[in-house]
Simulated scan of single mutants.
Amino acid sequence: MTDADSLSTASDSPPAVDTRSVDRHLAALGDKARDYARNARSENTQRAYDADWRQFSRWLRRQGFDPLPPDPQTVGLYLAACMEGGRGQEPVSVATLERRLSGICWHYRQLGEPLDTGDRHISTVLAGIRRAHGRPPVQKEAIFADDLRAMLAVLDNDLRGLRDKAMLAIGFAGGLRRSEIVGLDCGPDQSDDGRGWIEIFGRAETAADESATNDGGLLLTINGKTGWREVEIGRGTSPATCPIAMLETWMRLGRIAHGPLFRAIARKNGGVGAERLTDKHVARLVQKTALAAGVRGDLPEGDRKLAFSGHSLRAGLASSAQIEEAHVQRHLGHASAEMTRRYQRKRDRFRVNLTKAAGL
């Protein structure tokens, strides 16, 4: 072989590949893909699905069954066992059972072993359970505007009270889910765990000017359950009930200018921390203030404690706003008008009278 042939052969050979570098890159991509897969579900849903899988796995071990491959007949037996209770556990509701089945199916898909829920051992058992144990959906009580005013009145005017007032008012006026409330940042790209951000337009002084045709407002950009959406919140007629005025007061006195909008407050010195509140705070806040304000005082005390949740604010706006349904649907970010109607507690009850329309 001549020197020229040797050079030609060397130039035609592929460059050496660092397999360790490729493996590290692929491993990093695998970790990122798993993170994206987990983000396909909300944190609450993911926690519930993980708990469902753990409960199902424990049941399988007690019965001596293997989790793989997925066996529809075994899953059907598990569904029946959940409804029977036992071992110190109460029977579950049909809604909880359906959620557990969804969690089991999700985990099997992640394992590359999809579960066939159309198999008769699952579908027939589930249909029988629904027929025997099904109940109308239990809806949380809606918080109406008068209720909200009473709830705001029971809160103090310290930092914690000002923060909670802003959360209740923004949650109601925006028709927001509790995770959307606590997920707000002061601006875009300010945190890794944010669900959206705010923009304030106009000045607070114009809020009380009823002659103003457009006094600005608050624009929320939210990554919600059905994707990205924009929510407009207009200014109120009084600073005492204006959601934006309350938010501006909280931001000014709490010195909130960057990062999470609603944060924890230290118990010792009352200072504002850097940590974002969890969505559970919203649920506890609604329940506590609704009880203190005497909302639905006609209910027994035990029922009142269970009557309210974070969704009560969302349902209250949907039920109170006397505007076209399409506007409410877009504001709440619902994929269908039917879902919006489920939130409108008693708003349209008996408005359409088919008895009279039929001539009786």
Score class of each variant (00 low, 15 high):
residue 334 H to A: 02
residue 353 N to H: 07
residue 353 N to A: 08
residue 342 R to Q: 15
residue 328 V to T: 00
residue 348 D to A: 10
residue 343 Y to K: 03
residue 346 K to D: 12
residue 349 R to E: 07
residue 319 S to P: 03
residue 352 V to I: 13
residue 345 R to K: 10
residue 338 E to M: 14
residue 335 A to Q: 08
residue 338 E to H: 15
residue 328 V to D: 00
residue 353 N to S: 11
residue 336 S to W: 04
residue 330 R to V: 04
residue 326 A to Q: 13
residue 328 V to I: 07
residue 319 S to D: 06
residue 348 D to W: 12
residue 341 R to Q: 10
residue 325 E to C: 11
residue 328 V to S: 00
residue 348 D to N: 10
residue 330 R to G: 01
residue 324 E to K: 12
residue 349 R to K: 07
residue 325 E to T: 13
residue 325 E to Q: 14
residue 339 M to H: 07
residue 329 Q to T: 07
residue 339 M to I: 09
residue 353 N to V: 05
residue 330 R to H: 04
residue 321 A to S: 14
residue 325 E to R: 12
residue 348 D to I: 11
residue 334 H to R: 01
residue 352 V to D: 14
residue 349 R to D: 07
residue 340 T to C: 02
residue 339 M to F: 07
residue 338 E to V: 13
residue 323 I to C: 01
residue 342 R to F: 12
residue 345 R to W: 08
residue 341 R to F: 03
residue 336 S to Q: 05
residue 344 Q to W: 10
residue 344 Q to S: 13
residue 320 S to T: 04
residue 330 R to I: 04
residue 321 A to I: 04
residue 321 A to V: 07
residue 333 G to V: 04
residue 342 R to A: 15
residue 347 R to C: 03
residue 328 V to Y: 00
residue 333 G to Q: 05
residue 328 V to C: 00
residue 321 A to G: 08
residue 338 E to F: 15
residue 320 S to L: 00
residue 324 E to W: 11
residue 322 Q to G: 04
residue 338 E to D: 15
residue 339 M to S: 12
residue 319 S to E: 06
residue 345 R to F: 10
residue 324 E to G: 14
residue 323 I to N: 01
residue 331 H to Y: 05
residue 335 A to S: 10
residue 350 F to W: 14
residue 334 H to K: 03
residue 353 N to E: 08
residue 335 A to L: 07
residue 323 I to D: 01
residue 351 R to T: 08
residue 319 S to Y: 05
residue 336 S to D: 08
residue 322 Q to E: 15
residue 344 Q to D: 14
residue 336 S to N: 04
residue 322 Q to D: 13
residue 319 S to V: 04
residue 352 V to P: 06
residue 338 E to Q: 15
residue 329 Q to E: 08
residue 340 T to K: 01
residue 344 Q to I: 10
residue 325 E to L: 13
residue 352 V to A: 11
residue 320 S to Q: 03
residue 334 H to I: 00
residue 334 H to D: 02
residue 338 E to L: 13
residue 342 R to C: 14
residue 345 R to N: 10
residue 341 R to M: 05
residue 346 K to R: 09
residue 328 V to E: 03
residue 333 G to H: 06
residue 352 V to N: 11
residue 333 G to C: 05
residue 336 S to P: 02
residue 337 A to L: 15
residue 331 H to C: 06
residue 347 R to D: 03
residue 338 E to W: 10
residue 319 S to H: 04
